[in-house]
């Protein structure tokens, strides 16, 4: 269970929150001018980052407010919590560098 620090309410259990997917996906300036492919990519294509990932969360059982979070998808370490509309903060060098996964764990040989 993650312990997430809501910017309004303080640390709460993960079960009080809802995940909102990747953050900082801007709505297209002119949606009507997009090709079907570009529109589909805006709608459905998201990064699948291994490491630090910016994502949106909603504190649905508490203050019902959205916020952004930088979370490490490998270690689940929460690096930053920042308000909606704010730019992604710079991350330190604590990000684990993915080096040559010779034989990934659980891979079928």
């Amino acid at each position: 269970m993650l312990l997430i620090s809501c910017p309004n309410c303080g640390p709460r259990d993960e079960t009080e929150f809802h995940y909102g997917g990747q953050a900082h996906v801007p709505y297209p300036e002119n949606p009507a001018e997009l090709t079907d492919r570009e529109w589909a990519e805006y709608l459905f294509y998201r990064d699948n980052t291994k490491g630090i990932f910016a994502e949106r969360w909603l504190h649905s059982t508490g203050c019902r407010q959205w916020f952004n979070m930088l979370r490490d998808t490998v270690t689940y370490d929460i690096q930053a919590v920042y308000p909606m509309g704010q730019l992604r903060p710079a991350t330190g060098s604590t990000a684990p560098t993915v080096t040559t996964p010779a034989s990934p764990e659980g891979a079928i040989k």
Partner: peptide, 10 residues
């Protein structure tokens, strides 16, 4: 007063 979950319900 806090809004939270008790016994699994909000």
């Amino acid at each position: 007063a806090v809004s939270t979950a008790i016994g699994g319900i909000p």
